[in-house]
C-alpha cells in the first residue's frame, strides 16, 4: 500500500517559511523607500538655507559673486529666476504642442484597437517612450537648432514635447478605453456626428484621466536636462524671447555642479524641482480621484 503522505509535511516549518517570505517582502519594500527618503532629507537639509525671496526673483550668480560672498561669510547671492522662467516657458510651449497631438492620437488608438496602423503607432509610441532623452535632444538639434542657427526655447520645447507625447497618447488611450461603449452609442444614437461625440461626450467624460496624464507628463519633463543641453543651451539672464537660448532649472543645476563655487546652489535648486514635481503629482492624484470614471 502507498503510504499516505497528505499530512507528512511539518506544519510549523511551513508557517515559518510563510513568515520568512512575508518579512522578505516587507524588507524589500522598505529598501526602495530608503533612497527616496534619503534624497529628500539630503536636499532639504542642504538646500533650505538658500531659499528666500531673492532665490525666486534674481538670476543665477556668477562665480565671482559667489567667491565674494563666501569670503565675506555670506550665503551665495542670487537665485534661479532665469531657470524658473525658462522651465515655465518651455513646459508651457511643449504642452501646447504635445497635448492636442497626444490626445487626438490617443483617441485614434482607443477607437481603432486592432488594425495594423494602430498597432504600429502603439509600438512606435512605446519605442519613443524608451528613447534616451539625449537622443531626442540630438534629433531636435538637427531639426530645429541647425535650421534656425540658434539654440532656443522653441527647440527645447520641441524636445520636451517629444518626451511628453508618448505619455499623453498612452494615458489618453487607456482612459478612453475605460469609458463604457454605451456612451459613444448614446451620442451617435442621437444623430450626433462622430466629431461631436468625441469632442463633447468622450473627451469631457474622460477629463479626469486625461488631465492626470498630462500633469504626469509635465512633471516628467519638468526635470529633463539632457535634451535641453543640446537645444535650449542655457542663459545667464531671464529671457522671454523664445528664439534665443534659454535656461531651465535643471540646466542651472548642471551649471552649478560644474562650478565648485556654486555647489551650494545645487541643493536649493533641486529642492525647488522636487517640491514642484511633488505638487504636480499630488494635484494629478487628487484630480484622478475626484474625476474617477463611474
Amino acid at each position: 500500500m502507498i503510504p499516505d503522505k497528505s499530512r507528512s509535511s511539518s506544519v510549523s516549518f511551513r508557517i515559518f517559511k510563510d513568515r520568512f517570505f512575508y518579512v522578505c517582502v516587507c524588507l524589500m519594500a522598505s529598501l526602495t523607500a530608503i533612497p527616496l527618503i534619503w534624497i529628500i532629507w539630503e536636499v532639504l537639509k542642504k538646500g533650505y538655507r538658500q531659499i528666500n525671496l531673492s532665490f525666486f526673483t534674481e538670476v543665477a550668480p556668477t562665480t565671482l559673486e559667489a567667491i565674494k560672498a563666501k569670503n565675506a561669510g555670506d550665503l551665495i547671492p542670487g537665485g534661479i529666476a532665469n531657470g524658473i522662467t525658462g522651465t515655465l516657458i518651455m513646459v508651457v510651449i511643449a504642452s501646447l504642442i504635445a497635448i492636442p497631438i497626444g490626445i487626438l492620437g490617443g483617441v485614434y488608438l482607443s477607437e481603432h484597437r486592432n488594425n495594423r496602423f494602430s498597432s504600429l503607432i502603439r509600438s512606435l509610441t512605446d519605442l519613443l517612450q524608451g528613447t534616451p532623452s539625449i537622443v531626442v535632444g540630438i534629433i531636435v538639434y538637427f531639426w530645429v537648432v541647425k535650421p534656425l542657427s540658434s539654440y532656443s526655447a522653441v527647440a527645447g520645447s520641441v524636445a520636451l514635447a517629444i518626451m511628453m507625447l508618448p505619455l499623453i497618447i498612452r494615458s489618453t488611450e487607456e482612459t478612453l478605453k475605460m469609458l463604457p461603449g454605451t456612451l459613444k452609442e448614446a451620442g451617435l444614437a442621437l444623430g450626433a456626428s462622430y466629431t461631436s461625440v468625441v469632442l463633447r461626450v468622450l473627451i469631457p467624460s474622460a477629463f479626469g484621466g486625461l488631465f492626470t496624464g498630462i500633469l504626469l507628463a509635465v512633471s516628467r519633463v519638468t526635470g529633463e536636462t539632457a535634451p535641453l543641453m543640446l537645444t535650449a543651451l542655457g542663459a545667464s539672464a531671464v529671457n522671454w524671447d523664445i528664439t534665443r537660448p534659454t535656461s531651465s532649472v535643471s540646466l542651472l543645476i548642471w551649471q552649478f555642479y560644474n562650478d565648485p563655487n556654486l555647489v551650494d546652489m545645487i541643493w536649493s535648486s533641486s529642492l525647488f524641482l522636487l517640491v514642484l514635481i511633488l505638487i504636480l503629482n499630488i494635484i494629478a492624484k487628487s484630480v484622478a480621484n475626484k474625476w474617477r470614471i463611474q
Binding site: 463604457p180 454605451t182 456612451l183 452609442e185 448614446a186 451620442g187 444614437a189 461626450v201 469631457p204 467624460s205 477629463f207 470614471i293 463611474q294
Partner: peptide, 10 residues
C-alpha cells in the same frame, strides 16, 4: 434607448 441607462456623465 439602450439596455443600461447611459445619461452623459458630464
Amino acid at each position: 434607448v439602450f439596455q443600461r441607462p447611459n445619461p452623459f456623465p458630464t
